[in-house]
Design a protein around this nucleic acid. Sequence first.
DNA 1: TTGTATGCGTTATCAC
DNA 2: GTGATAACGCATACAA
Lengths: 341, 341
Amino acid sequence: MDIKTKGFVSAETVARLAGVSRSAVSRTFTDGASVSEATRKKVLEAAAVLGYHVNHLARGLSHDRSNIIGIIVSEIPTPYQARMLDEMTRQLQAIGKVGMVINTTGDAESVANALRQTLNFRADGVIVLSGTPDASLIASCVANGQRVILINRSDHIEGPANLAVENAETAREAYHLLRRAGCQRLAVVSSTAGTPSLSARDSAFAAAAAEDGLSVPIIRAGATGYAAGAEAARQLYSRSGGPDGVFGVTDLLALGFMDAARHSFGLRVPQDVSIVGFDDIEQAGWESYALTTFRQPVEEMVQLIVQLLTQAGPDEWAHVVPPIKPVPIWRKSVLPRPNAG
Amino acid sequence: MDIKTKGFVSAETVARLAGVSRSAVSRTFTDGASVSEATRKKVLEAAAVLGYHVNHLARGLSHDRSNIIGIIVSEIPTPYQARMLDEMTRQLQAIGKVGMVINTTGDAESVANALRQTLNFRADGVIVLSGTPDASLIASCVANGQRVILINRSDHIEGPANLAVENAETAREAYHLLRRAGCQRLAVVSSTAGTPSLSARDSAFAAAAAEDGLSVPIIRAGATGYAAGAEAARQLYSRSGGPDGVFGVTDLLALGFMDAARHSFGLRVPQDVSIVGFDDIEQAGWESYALTTFRQPVEEMVQLIVQLLTQAGPDEWAHVVPPIKPVPIWRKSVLPRPNAG
DNA sequence: TTGTATGCGTTATCAC
DNA sequence: GTGATAACGCATACAA
């Protein structure tokens, strides 16, 4: 038996129907407030009849928390980003918060607008998954009491927490893994995106090779993704002397490379070329690829993020963030060590 | 030169620094309000110094719109869902709204909570991408003036707009496409998820076959996804007489099927088995698969959704939603018609 | 154009 | 345990 005609119903209306005061209604819906069972029941009933729902906007106004967390991201359809988004929204909800996802193109202006959005909506915190945020705007967020967390952008700005995977170390590991497999002519497939993470990976790989006196080409044949990987293969194999071991700084890159190597050049994986990736997206495990790669522990990363968002204060952040170590996932795209044992 | 110490700065503070009234500040940040250029400038300067950002929570309180759109979704890492999410958040932002994504497990209780969240945050509208929402809660949303849009859930509830692709028609088209390719033993690979869309597709395919006096098995070997498709192949080919033509009600299903058919049973695609999918996710175009499929026009769908969200009133919705027709994308997973010409 | 006053829906503080 | 009342930050009708 709905009474209202339009718009949302307020606590005031509920109070009238239940024959109690606004405060009683408020208390009924506030955790740990003291209401008698009798009034509580009356209120709940009236609320159900009217279809009342607490207005979190108003609540966030008096209270100083909105329970909104801004998530700034780009290229959502990318398996890695989608997985991150999935895990974040899930875990955020588990602690009673809600994610406001802001989709940016990744350029400075776009990210700046995203940051302003989170400010406008008084988000309790901001998680930056991609793009290079303007330092002064970040500072503004921090100054306003927002918890801001930067993921995999190793530009160490003061204030926000920086959560980064061990990119360089893992890239070195990839190098040694390929070398132990007997690969002689190495190459790294990277992208023109040039994000801090990706750069860290490709340059660390090259550096590790340089220590052994090896020079490896870094191919950047387009923005990150499948197509760029495929194009890299075309560039590398269009003349003889192509690589017999490649490191894709991203699984997507590695997968594109693998497909082009196989279908455009008839190469066998891993007999003719060993390939190792980074991320362990779902597709890496598909039978057509069976890509050996390094898994980013997404679930643990997000747990850490949520912890940062809620428990710790900005001052203690430096200490609470442990190193995050991708672990190698062995599948079939890398040659077994020839002289094993 | 920051003055504030903690928390967000309000219009009040800006007004004091600029030497004007609160209203002047408000007007400066309200589109189409009348402020003199002089005060406007003073306000803008003070705001910049203080790092002021309009509080949309408070704004949404007096105004009756929050500019928040709830997006209810599950299985975000799924390429199709991720693509949808990407397009929605992008287009929503383009019209000054922001998406609040609520990640559900898809079960009734979870979706109900999601719906309540959108009510709590006074979302202007709700887009339901997955899950089966409780009819009475939907009614409550509509009653409260929210625009709610159901995507691909053909349970026609009164009130919300229903946006659905032509599932049945397209499934029939898939059937004829396979038949024209010369396939004799057909099968459809579906999932245990049993969403309205998927059911519509598999049963329409079977119905089309029945009209020709053909009986086709519908395999549901797990929840939607790659693994379920692969398992379906194992079930179908573990004994002789496996299909030479299959319809995957989802690309993911089709891809999993293709991989298992090839790698576990040595089948060639399309020589031994023709496969057609549904969705046209990015991976369908990867060289290892080259899946012939039907593309869901995601961008147009979202345009329509946004239009529904903003322009039309609920009363006119029935008329504004045109049929959405997936278009066939020909790649290499279906045998060319044997007796062409 | 500008400032003053009021209302938006809550929660918190205070008396009772 | 309950009800009045004052914030919270903003937009706006109104008066100047």
